[in-house]
Design a binder for these strands. Structure first.
Lengths: 149, 149
DNA sequence: ATGACTGCAAAATATTTGCATATTC
DNA sequence: GAATATGCAAATATTTTGCAGTCAT
């Protein structure tokens, strides 16, 4: 769901207007998809999803669109799983967990004392990112089952 | 400097042997360069540095070598500045600061309550990563000077 | 009509793979 | 001499760029 600063639900169109981005058809579709998704999709995932219903959609447009969203702070870009960027609609500040087995990315909401810092070591902070890598609960369970056999 | 678990200085060769990696000439050079470097170099930076004195060095070998180092936990791979992986010799656990202007990466040593966690949300943690993005002190200073002109 | 947006194609960049050669034990 | 490591070349993957056509004021 997309909300404004007061946590009131607003449309994708209003969200783009609020950030001075012209709400074109393609941009709305990208934003709507991201706001519904919890899989932190790659450019390719977004493209494949949208081209299914919008045959003229191009990857360049997905790249362009994501770049403008990231610039405006509506979407954040995660470089945590190898060489492919992943994207998420910006909501509450949180950390991530990346599973080495299944490569899924999960949101981890935990208190972080650095989340409110404005600067560190004399450097001005604009963004904070925290992530964990390991084995997710699902994969750990599957492994346990396999070993029992 | 390379140290063992008791913080005693050891040679690159001993470090590789301790991790069951055959200490070949190329691997030693990569490890020595990383252990001396504080710039979190890319594959290309490592390659260019080494090929200057070892004309037969290939990028494939740098990739292979880094992969084995990361697998053994001697080196860690950072995906935080766009599409190019950066590498650092593993020492004390710490966070990073990435400057949006000059793209330099700095180590940030701060207390983090999550650094000792073994699991989060039921998922088993193997690695923790934290980083900040913003404007470094140097670039902020330069900007201030430019504005004053 | 102007300026912004889209999308194809090509270029640029980054990484991986196949395989032949070289090296080491 | 068997096993492993190296390095060239090609393939693949990801992102960016140039440009021509399209769309919306």
């Amino acid at each position: 769901m997309i909300t404004n600063r007061k946590q009131r639900p607003i449309s994708a169109e209003q969200q783009l207007l609020a950030h001075h981005i012209k709400p074109t058809f393609q941009r709305l579709k990208v934003l709507e998809f991201l706001s519904k998704s919890c899989i932190h999709p790659t450019v390719d995932m977004i493209y494949r999803e949208l081209v299914a219903t919008i045959p003229t959609m191009s990857k360049t447009t997905v790249y362009n669109t994501l770049k403008s969203f990231v610039d405006k702070g509506i979407v954040s870009s995660l470089m945590i799983t190898g060489t492919e960027a992943r994207f998420e609609y910006v909501r509450q500040s949180h950390h991530h967990f990346i599973c080495e087995k299944c490569n899924s990315i999960m949101d981890i909401v935990i208190a972080c004392p650095h989340a409110v810092k404005r600067s560190v070591g004399g450097h001005t902070i604009k963004e904070q990112h925290g992530y964990f890598k390991g084995i997710c609960a699902d994969c750990a369970k599957k492994e346990a089952v396999n070993e029992a056999v």
